[in-house]
Computed example of a mutant assay.
Amino acid sequence: MSLPRTLVAMMVAALGGEMAHAADASRQAATSPAALAIIVRDDTGRDVRLAAPARRIVTLSPHATELMVAAGAGDRLVGVDQNSDYPPEMKRLAQVGNPLNLDIERVLALKPDLIVAWDYAASGSTAGKLPMALLDSLGIAVFYSRPAVLADIPITLDRFGRLAGTDAVATPRAAQLRQQLQSLTATYAGQTPVRTFYQLSGQPIYTLNNRGIIGDALRLCGADNVFGTLPAAAPMVSVEGVLLANPQVIVVGASKGAGAAGAAGADGNAALAQWKAFAPGLTAAARGHLFVADADRMHRPGPRMIEETRTLCEHIDQARSPK
């Protein structure tokens, strides 16, 4: 039995009204504060939530400062830690100390809507935990950053772009960094391993194992880290231990700034001169494979670290060619 035309018309009108109401509700839900919130997971696994893109950012680590600038958010930075000196104009911003000695009052005076801090907890340290917890309790969003491998650098850049609403800058820049890493991987994959000693400091002598981001850079270059299997992240070693390992390449991480001291006060050239004295018994010294890596670039997991890794790989590769 067919329905009367009037009834059909009423049913269609009612259905149309319900659909319009549903569409309205859907639009309202899409534009609600909850739907517009920015949620980004940090390196501790916490979801950091912002109601809107961050406009006043404080960074408490040099790598975070560099990455925020690279992400196009340099104009959003209102304060930095005392060691953030790149780009140079960052030194003109308010300095708030560091997570170990943070000036809480100065941080609060800057009225940040986002703080980016190094994740010390990943290394088992409680350094900076109390001031960060205090800031978090005051309702200030805290994002913990600790890139563990080189591939984490473009990932972090993307995340910072989302937090600051600068994806248009961050996304293509992150893609460039990924391309650089892919190029390095393709170049050095399958190359003959080169026994390498990476020196972090001079007196006492500290090195690093394979688990950190510098260890990842060495691995990408095809280096066989002679102390890579030690349990400590930054083990102390002796001169005798280095001589016994007899690396083909020695790399010293030190600042290349004019007159500046390197990592932990060890001057790079002075450290290399000490190893030269052990030639010809020390292979790296005998063959001249002694290099300085710029600590300001290599020890800060930002875009410049990937560039410095290319230089590191080129140095290591020289040891593959007989002299």
Score class of each variant (00 low, 15 high):
Asn98Trp: 04
Ala122Gln: 11
Arg195Asn: 07
Met90Trp: 05
Gly262Asp: 06
Leu134His: 05
His289Ile: 08
Gly265Trp: 01
Leu181Trp: 01
Leu134Val: 10
Leu36Tyr: 03
Leu157Val: 01
Ala121Pro: 00
Pro204Gln: 15
Pro247Cys: 09
Ala22Arg: 06
Leu67Gln: 08
Gly222Ser: 10
Phe227Asn: 10
Ala117Asn: 06
Ala71Arg: 10
Leu218Ile: 00
Ala20Asp: 08
Ser321Ala: 12
Ser2Ile: 10
Thr311Phe: 04
Lys276Gln: 15
Arg76Gly: 02
Asp294Cys: 01
Gly16Asn: 01
Glu66Pro: 13
Tyr198Thr: 03
Leu243Asn: 03
Pro301Arg: 04
Ser123Val: 13
Gly190Phe: 09
Val252Phe: 02
Thr65His: 08
Ala164Ser: 11
Arg56Glu: 05
Met1Val: 11
Ala284Lys: 10
Leu100Asn: 05
Ala141Thr: 02
Asp152His: 09
Gly124Phe: 03
His63Met: 07
Cys313Met: 07
Val251Tyr: 04
Pro172Leu: 03
Thr44Trp: 13
Phe278Arg: 11
Trp118Tyr: 15
Asp47Met: 08
Leu181Lys: 09
Ile205Met: 08
Arg287Phe: 11
Thr187Tyr: 01
Gly45Cys: 15
Ser84Gln: 06
Ala279Ile: 07
Glu314Asn: 09
Leu3Trp: 09
Tyr206Gly: 09
Ala71Ser: 14
Ala64Arg: 04
Gln203Asn: 14
Pro193Asn: 02
Ala254Tyr: 00
Leu230Tyr: 15
Ala168Gly: 05
Cys313Asp: 02
Arg211Ser: 12
Trp275Tyr: 11
Pro303Val: 09
Ala258Leu: 03
Phe291Gly: 00
His21Arg: 15
Ala233Met: 15
Tyr206Ala: 05
Arg106Asp: 05
Leu135Gly: 12
Thr6Pro: 00
Lys276Phe: 03
Arg287Asn: 14
Arg178Phe: 11
Asn98Ala: 07
Pro112Arg: 09
Gln318Lys: 13
Arg56Met: 04
Gly79Thr: 03
Arg27Trp: 11
Ala20Asn: 02
Ser26Ala: 10
His299Gly: 04
Pro322Ala: 12
Arg300Ile: 04
Ala13Phe: 01
Leu230His: 04
Asp267His: 07
Leu67Ile: 12
Asp103Ser: 15
Met90Ile: 12
Asn209Gly: 08
Pro172His: 13
Ala261Asp: 08
His63Gly: 09
Arg178Cys: 07
Ile104Met: 07
Arg5Val: 06
Gly165Val: 14
Gly259Glu: 00
Ala13Pro: 01
Ala284Tyr: 08
Ile213Asp: 05
Gly222Asp: 07
Ala148Glu: 11
Pro131Trp: 09
Val292Ala: 01
Leu208Val: 07
Lys276Met: 08
Pro53Leu: 05
Ala20Arg: 12
Leu130Asn: 06
Ala168Ile: 13
Gly259Val: 01
Glu240Val: 12
Glu314Gln: 14
Glu240Pro: 04
Thr187His: 15
Ala73Ile: 10
